[in-house]
Every structure is written in C-alpha cells, then in structure tokens.
C-alpha cells in the first residue's frame, strides 16, 4: 500500500498544544473552576473521539445491525454514573454543600421530546455530543446538523410554555425520596444488569450463535 499520502501533522499538533496551553493559562487567571471545566470538556472530547464512543450507535445498532457492544459500554457508563452521583450527592449533603441533580419535571413533552430527539439523532448521524465531536473531526454534515440543532433548540425552549399549558407537567420524581437510597440503587443497577444481559443475548442471537 502506498503510504506517501500519510504525513505527520505533528507541527500543527505542537501549535495546537501551545494554543491550548495559552488558553488554559489565560483562563486560570480568571477562574480556576472554569479552567477545570474547560479541561474536563477537552478530556471528554478527547476520550469520546479516541474510543469512537457514540451514544446514537449504542441505541441504534441493536436495531439496524444487531450489534450491542456500544450499548453495553453505555450501560456500564450509566452504572458508574449512578453510583458516582449517589456518592457525591450524599457527600455534599453531609457537608451541607448545595448540589443539584438532573431531576427534571415530567410531561407529555418529555416523551415527545425524546421521540423527536431519537429520530433526529439517527438522521443527523450523532447526538448533541456526537455533533460537537464530529465538528472537531471535520465533518461538514455535522456542521449542518449543528445549525439545525441551534435553531431547533431556540424553537423548543420557546415552545415549552405552550406544552406545559396544554398538557400540564408533573414535578420530577427523585427515586431515593420514595424508595430510599439503597433500594433505589439496587433497583437501578439490577435493571441495568438485566439490560446488559439482554444486550449480550441479542447480539449473539443476531450473529446466529444463539
């Protein structure tokens, strides 16, 4: 195979590293907290690209090609996050540090929103995170998707009032308040575990091994 078209982008890389260093240094003069978050953001983007992690693939591939590798990896991510969040929340409440979790109100618009989001991410070839990653990778298609995302988000945000008025809304349900922490965690991890087994079975079945 002719490898002459594979050239090192090292110079660009060095330049970019200097740029990032400058950015981080400047930001650290303003706020350590924002600097940390920027660094975390960079880490997210880096890891997502390097591991080819795709949440759309996790939900779509069992349906379209019978593969559940990413689905199972996503379930692992969910499990780690559930445990980590519980720990952090508990730790923060012990020290009286205010911390908010994503316990969102529930309404018809939650389901409609989910449906639209699911359809949209398959058509766009990425979810909101995926779009940002692919813009970073240089995909023109996701530049266009981003444009749509921006417009759609404004339309969505501004129509929220109408959805609430027409269909109403219930406050979010924080499961530990109802079941207690330990039963909640056990329940959630059990469900994830069942889904994981199901995902593994599904792939084997699609591959004809089961």
């Amino acid at each position: 195979m002719n490898n002459s078209s594979l050239h090192s982008q090292r110079n660009l890389n060095i330049g970019f590293i200097l740029f990032l260093t400058l950015l981080i240094t400047l930001l650290s003069q303003i706020s350590i907290r924002l600097t940390l978050l920027m660094a975390l953001g960079i880490s997210f983007g880096f890891v997502l690209q390097k591991s080819r992690f795709c949440l759309v693939s996790a939900l779509r591939d069992p349906i379209l090609i019978g593969m559940t590798q990413l689905t199972r990896a996503f379930l692992l991510l969910l499990g780690i996050s559930i445990l980590g969040f519980a720990l952090v929340f508990w730790g923060a409440s012990q020290r009286n540090i205010p911390l908010s979790l994503n316990v969102f109100p529930l309404g018809v618009h939650t389901v409609v929103g989910g449906l639209l989001f699911g359809i949209g991410m398959v058509l766009a070839g990425g979810c909101s995170t995926g779009i940002l990653v692919r813009i970073g990778e240089g995909f023109a298609m996701q530049f266009v998707a981003f444009f749509g995302l921006v417009i759609g988000s404004v339309l969505g945000e501004r129509s929220l009032k109408n959805w609430r008025n027409v269909f109403g809304e219930w406050p979010g349900v924080f499961l530990p308040d109802i079941l207690g922490w330990i039963p909640t965690l056990l329940l959630e991890l059990s469900v994830l575990s069942v889904l994981w087994q199901l995902a593994r079975w599904w792939q084997k079945k699609q591959l004809g091994e089961w």
């Binding site: 979790l101 109100p105 949209g120 339309l155 965690l185």
Partner: peptide, 30 residues
C-alpha cells in the same frame, strides 16, 4: 435531524447527556 434534536432536547430539558445519561444518573424517574 438537528432541528428535531434541538427542539426535542429543550422541551425535555436535556439531550442524551443531560436528560438521558444524567437524568438516570440522578436517580430520576424522568
């Protein structure tokens, strides 16, 4: 796809990360 995603995400208060991953991570039924 982008339009649907943006609209859907904001009426549901979040996307795959905010409402799905971190909604579940927050032990929220939603």
């Amino acid at each position: 796809g982008g339009l649907f995603m943006g609209y859907g995400a904001r009426i549901a208060y979040g996307c795959n990360v905010g409402a799905l991953l971190n909604g579940i991570a927050s032990s929220s039924l939603t």
